[in-house]
């Protein structure tokens, strides 16, 4: 999903078409940066948000790093717990975004489904004290929760067992489901797990997350 100077141009043009108040303020071999205003006009569960936000959109070139947003308009409270002190947003887990865009990154939908919804969740939270679509725990628990959604598992423990199964064992629909339901895999979590078997790229992202999580667990146990 690495952006190159060549493949970024058409996506930037589209992005500026959808968000006409953004302008390119930097463009070189490491980074393309846009600055300006975006209008977020979305509705969900009888909450309609219509507000303009000033931001920087940074797109790393020639690197595997994901695009990121900096809140130059300072719309987000400094002590909001999904906000880094350098003004970057924690939009969603990296793995969720990487898996979502496994067949190619799309800046326009990333802006509308991740960036706009970040503001939407924030404003909803400010008003009602709860998140409209939930939130992730910080750190690796949040990563496990990402897979919980993909795998439709009931909790983090079950998710962890399903992830380990995907890493270590081949898919056989008649085998008992590792969640412990004693149902065959195909009638239980099998359908949700299949995409990880079918697409090696997604499986690799998941395995890397699982290894990182295991490492963190064993570090904690040593302390």
């Amino acid at each position: 999903m690495t952006f190159t100077v060549e493949n970024i141009t058409s996506q930037i043009t589209q992005l500026m078409h959808e968000y006409p108040d953004l302008v390119v303020i930097r463009s070189d071999h490491q980074m393309v940066c846009l600055h300006g205003d975006i209008l977020v006009f979305r509705t969900y569960n009888d909450f309609t948000l219509r507000k303009t936000y000033t931001l920087d959109v940074n797109i790393p070139i020639g690197s595997d790093e994901l695009p990121f947003i900096v809140d130059t308009g300072r719309h987000i409270r400094q002590d909001y717990h999904h906000y880094y002190s350098d003004g970057k947003f924690c939009l969603a887990t990296d793995s969720q975004i990487r898996i979502h865009y496994i067949d190619g990154f799309d800046l326009v939908t990333w802006m509308s489904e991740f960036v706009e919804l970040y503001y939407f969740s924030y404003e909803y939270y400010e008003r009602f004290g709860i998140f409209p679509f939930g939130e992730r725990s910080h750190g690796s628990w949040g990563v496990i929760q990402t897979y919980q959604d993909f795998l439709m598992a009931k909790d983090e423990i079950e998710t962890y067992m399903l992830m380990r199964f995907i890493k270590d064992q081949a898919y056989r629909g008649h085998l008992p489901c590792p969640c412990g339901s004693s149902k065959p895999l195909r009638n239980c979590h099998g359908p949700a797990m299949l995409r990880f078997y079918k697409d090696k790229r997604i499986k690799k992202i998941m395995i890397n997350d699982l290894i990182a999580f295991n490492k963190e667990l064993s570090n904690k146990n040593e302390c």
Binding site: R42, C90, E113, F114, L117, S121, P132, G134, D149
Partner: peptide, 19 residues
């Protein structure tokens, strides 16, 4: 002039932080 775009929560972005 135009209606707001509805949010369709399939697996919507849930805010997260590294630590």
């Amino acid at each position: 002039k135009i209606a707001p775009k509805p949010v369709i929560p399939v697996i919507p972005a849930k805010p997260w932080r590294l630590q």
